[in-house]
Simulated scan of single mutants.
Amino acid sequence: MLIARGARSSYAHGPGPVWGEADRRATQAFQRAQGWTGADADGIPGRRTWDLLSTGRGKDVTAAGPASHGVPGYPGRQYFRPGRSNDHITRLGAQLVKKGFGRFYDRGPGPHWGEADRRAVEAFQRAQGWRGGAADGYPGPETWRRLFA
């Protein structure tokens, strides 16, 4: 869940089955993204942290700019929701088309988030081998990174 919320840079090799320092750093990055400081951002997933992570609420960990690998910085989950309209949606849709996931668009991608966008993102996520909640059709930081890589 932490990687899906933007904390991939905390892991050198990805999360594993045993809690470690990378997990603490990733949790702390997520907590700081919520605006928490001090003991509230200790890197230990307490009740508030777990609630935000497990429900998809709260703010994602965001990069300040393009990542070192040349992928444009993920703008944040809030830009990709029903009723939203912005340039990030257009950019996402254009990249989905470029990567071969444009079959859901009747007239091509545009700035308004719609079912075609969600279905195209879901198809891309499933092509990554993701299932269940990991393939929900809403781009998180890892979907964004892989799509633009």
Rank of each mutant, 00 (worst) to 15 (best):
R119Y: 00
Q95W: 01
R91L: 12
T37K: 09
G43M: 01
S9H: 14
R146V: 05
P109C: 14
W113H: 06
Y138A: 07
G102P: 02
I89Y: 01
P141D: 15
A64P: 09
L2K: 01
A12Q: 13
A116M: 05
P75H: 07
R8A: 15
R24H: 07
G70D: 10
G73T: 06
G70E: 07
D23P: 00
T27W: 12
R146A: 10
P17Q: 05
E21G: 09
R126A: 11
G56D: 09
D87R: 15
G100P: 05
W50S: 15
D60T: 05
R24L: 11
P45Q: 14
E142T: 13
P109G: 13
G102L: 01
D40Q: 15
K98H: 14
H69L: 10
A67R: 15
G133C: 02
L53I: 08
V71T: 12
A149I: 03
S68L: 11
R25I: 10
R118Q: 15
R47F: 04
R145M: 13
T27C: 15
V121P: 02
P45I: 13
L92M: 10
P75K: 03
I89A: 04
E21C: 05
H88S: 02
G137D: 08
N86R: 01
F80Y: 11
F104A: 11
V71W: 06
R24S: 12
P72Y: 03
R57W: 00
V97Y: 09
P109M: 15
V71Y: 02
V61D: 06
I44N: 12
D42V: 03
V18Y: 12
D136S: 07
G114Y: 07
G38F: 01
I89T: 06
G35R: 02
A149C: 07
L147K: 04
G140L: 03
R24E: 14
R47P: 12
Y105R: 09
P75V: 00
Y74I: 08
R81C: 05
G133Y: 00
L92K: 07
P15Y: 14
K98G: 07
G38I: 06
G76R: 01
A4T: 09
R77D: 08
R91P: 02
D117G: 08
Q78H: 09
D51N: 13
P111E: 11
G133T: 02
F101S: 06
D42N: 14
T27I: 12
Q128C: 09
R126M: 09
A12H: 06
R103C: 03
G102K: 03
Q128E: 15
